[in-house]
Write a protein that binds this DNA or RNA. Structure first.
Length: 794
DNA sequence: CACGCTCTGCCTGCG
DNA sequence: GCAGAGCGTG
């Protein structure tokens, strides 16, 4: 190492004296692919922020080649500076800037996070680190970044740049319509599950055609393929994208348009992705497409905190990163600044039971702290009371505040009892993750009006509001409207506007046109007046407010929420110079949560373990540590799912800074019936010496008493459910697919008579059967062409 | 076309 | 135990 290098290292070590050696390494390694495996509470956000600042101020100052214009005198003065201790970063920065190698303009840095919450935090911290420079950085969620790009380029693949974004509920509505279109049994094909399959395809970049090709003669798959196609068609007609499409279309543009790809690749010289364990395949491809020119891509994540596989995340992204990007440097951040030694040991002990992991061991300089408390309670009511009492006691005797406590549970259903008991005990608490403001019915309704005003092609939203308030326009009328729109090739709104021109609509024409007039009138207001006025007019002229006011039920919450929306419009107009309706709707489509978790609120916080990711609390309670609750019954099928649950437990445990309480009950109400579950395997997997001894004794007793009968019972239930599903599928196949037969089935052929299926060989697009006929011997024939009928043997 | 009754299926959840 | 869907009736 030459003198300059030595001096540089010393100076940067001083500049980053607040960071540990590994964090410093992550911050200063800026060129080339970099994988940072950051354990819980290891200061990864700090690393991300400092690294971006480093890239902007100094470029690759530490490892790049400095232009050799430092005089020996300058070098000496640098060396002297490096020997002074306690130089503040503000003093060092101007000096270090002279050593900068290709510092990067902020507009060429792309920082991707998963949630809006994380994005906001990132932006705030960049702002305080970099001041106004931060405004130019491309920082946001995958979706917000893609939407920005789509606005610029989506017309390149034949879409209108004024697209609408459909949320999950809209998508469900579209899918329900598709299922109805194809006259399918709605019990066989539930919108939710079909959408899950389509989303899975999109996440893995499987196209409709590819999916269709793999379907073979599996009728169910074929039907999914048809629904997939129909769904996309309906979206396209409504000029709408679902959440997955936002990523997908961006990829399509980058793949298909070389010039756009080149522009983007040049634009994003440095790319940083947070929570990389939560990315799916499509997002990986997107990142690749953007990063392929410079390959300056850093991903940060923790394979042990991957808890979103169920929604398409593939932990393989983080596990394989170093194989996908050659000469990746890997840095482990294993020093934890959050939890006590005991809590960390518990977390390490638990996660060690997982097999598929990179392997990482968190450590801390903090002291051991208190043992983990485990308590058995009679039922969920007692459990909630135990939590309330313990919290009250700790506030009274140990100087804690209410906002020091978090209660984390596996499923939202558990929150009910907790909330009731806490309210009764006058314990200040806040419930997170219930119905979000934007998900409330009345808010969705008004947003639907606004969406239709903005994009009349938006049939889904149109159907939502056309009879709300009641205008006596029913499903039948809308069916014929949709039918006409398909026939005439005009959008549904145009049909409604000119309803009197269609004989089929003669009965309801005046009602339809009345509705169209309201929308047209509001569209004019949208053109000429500011947003708050438009919102007020929409609420009035639609008759929505009157509907609420005249309701027989108490709707004061809804009225308040609707009025709140007008204040939102005022706030939006004030903070956005270009406060168009389109901009408002777009922001609201992407902002899923007005997540105002306020640590200062002076209240105990209740939320799911999932939504606690990224947060920390001095004291954490984990109620419901029972098999079939946590791990959930529904995840007991495969080891993979159990490992994901275990990671969830790891996440939950590592939220705690000082104290951790685990509770389980002898009995619990699940789906309205009492059940008794044995203690969670995750409790048994914790090192016993870390547990509070009094409770450990109790635990052993219970554990020995409780055999696997419950597991056996739930297995049985699962088998029954599976059989029921299988039976339904079978019935469906028989009904819809007369050319498909199973092994051993009796069939009738027009010429050969009665036979038995000997073998089934699936070919692309058809199936080859070998059938032994009573009279004609064994024949091979294709399912589609042979005139085979099923012999219903009952 | 609206209302009320019965039946079913149920986790976690970012955009 | 509860919400949402489906079905039958006024």
């Amino acid at each position: 190492m030459n003198k300059l290098d030595t001096v540089k290292h010393k100076l940067f070590d001083a500049y980053y004296s607040q960071l540990n050696a590994m964090q410093r390494k992550a911050v200063t390694t800026v060129n080339g692919p970099l994988l940072v495996l950051a354990g819980a509470g290891s200061g990864k956000t700090t690393v991300l922020v400092k690294r971006i600042a480093h890239i902007i101020h100094f470029g690759d100052a530490l490892h790049g080649k400095n232009s050799a214009d430092l005089t020996p005198g300058e070098l000496n003065s640098l060396e002297q500076l490096s020997q002074i201790h306690g130089c503040s970063p503000d003093m060092l920065r101007p000096v270090l800037k002279k050593l900068a190698v290709d510092p990067c303009p902020p507009r060429n840095v792309l920082s991707i996070t998963f949630t809006n919450k994380a994005a906001t935090e990132m932006k705030n911290r960049l702002k305080s680190e970099l001041g106004d420079l931060a405004d130019e950085i491309w920082a946001g969620t995958f979706h917000s970044i893609c939407v920005r790009l789509l606005h610029r380029y989506i017309q390149r693949i034949g879409f209108d740049s004024q697209f609408t974004i459909y949320d999950t509920e809209d998508s469900k509505k579209v899918m329900a319509d598709c299922i109805a279109d194809l006259e399918l049994d709605s019990k066989m094909f539930m919108p939710r599950s079909v959408l899950q399959i389509i989303s899975g395809c999109k996440n893995r970049l499987v196209t409709q055609e590819e999916f269709e090709n793999t379907a073979g003669d599996d009728f169910k798959k074929q039907t999914f393929a048809r629904l997939f196609k129909r769904y996309q068609l309906r979206l396209a007609n409504a000029n709408a994208l679902d959440f997955d499409d936002i990523i997908l279309m961006t990829i399509r543009i980058l793949r298909e348009c070389e010039d756009v790809r080149n522009t983007c690749q040049k634009q994003f010289k440095y790319i940083l992705v947070d929570e990389y364990q939560d990315t799916n395949y499509a997002q990986y491809i997107l990142m690749r497409l953007l990063a392929d020119k410079y390959r300056n891509v850093m991903v940060v994540g923790d394979d042990d905190q991957s808890i979103y596989k169920f929604r398409g995340a593939t932990v393989e992204n983080i596990l394989n990163f170093d194989k996908q990007f050659t000469d990746t440097k890997t840095i482990y951040l294993e020093q934890n600044y959050r939890s006590t030694g005991t809590i960390l040991k518990a977390a390490n002990g638990l996660i060690a039971h997982n097999t598929c992991r990179k392997g990482k061991n968190l450590w801390t300089e903090r002291d051991e702290g208190n043992k983990i408390v485990l308590r058995e309670l009679d039922n969920q009511e007692m459990e909630a009371r135990y939590l309330a009492d313990t919290i009250q006691r700790m506030v009274r005797d140990e100087g804690y505040h209410y906002n020091d406590f978090a209660v984390l549970y596996r499923s939202n259903a558990q929150s009910n009892t907790l909330e009731n008991v806490f309210t009764r005990s006058a314990l200040p608490h806040r419930l997170l993750g219930g119905t979000r403001f934007n998900d409330r019915r009345e808010i969705k309704d008004i947003h639907a009006y606004l969406s239709v005003i903005n994009n009349p092609k938006d049939t889904v939203r149109l159907e939502r509001i056309i009879n709300l308030p009641k205008r006596n326009i029913g499903v039948i009328t809308m069916k014929s409207v949709v039918h006409l729109s398909e026939e005439e090739g005009v959008c549904t709104f145009d049909i409604i506007k000119n309803a009197n021109q269609y004989p089929a609509l003669s009965k309801t024409a005046s009602k339809l046109m009345g509705f169209a007039n309201v929308i047209t009138e509001l569209q004019e207001i949208a053109q000429n007046k500011p947003l708050p006025a438009l919102f007020a007019a929409t609420i009035e002229k639609s008759g929505y407010m009157d509907m609420l006011l005249n309701s027989t039920e108490d709707e004061k919450d809804r009225i308040a929420n609707v009025n709140e929306l007008i204040s939102n419009a005022v706030a939006f107009t004030e903070s956005n110079p270009e406060a168009t309706l389109a901009a408002y709707l777009e922001e609201n489509a992407l902002v899923a949560d007005i997540d105002n978790y306020d640590p200062e609120a002076g209240a105990v916080v209740l939320m799911t373990m999932h939504s606690s990711k990224g947060l920390e609390f001095p004291v954490v309670f984990l109620p419901g540590m029972e098999e079939n609750v946590f791990p959930s019954v529904l995840s007991q099928l495969s080891n993979e799912e159990i490992e994901e649950e275990r990671r969830l437990a790891y996440v939950a445990i590592t939220r705690a800074k000082k104290e951790l309480f685990l509770t389980y009950t002898r009995e619990r109400l699940i789906y309205g019936r009492t059940s008794s579950n044995r203690i969670s395997r995750f409790v048994e997997e914790l090192p016993q010496e870390l547990m509070d001894s009094t409770s450990a004794a109790m635990y052993r007793r219970f554990s020995l008493g409780g055999t696997d009968y419950q597991a056996a019972a739930s297995k049985a239930i699962e088998t029954i459910t599976k059989k029921r599903i299988a039976a339904k599928e079978e019935e469906f196949m028989r009904k819809h697919n007369p050319h498909s037969f199973t092994l051993g089935e009796k069939v009738i052929h027009d010429m050969f008579g009665l036979g038995v299926v000997q073998s089934v060989k699936k070919l692309t697009g058809d199936t080859l059967y070998e059938i032994t006929f009573e009279k004609a011997g064994t024949k091979k024939m294709m399912g589609t062409y042979a005139k085979l009928r099923r012999k219903d043997a009952e």
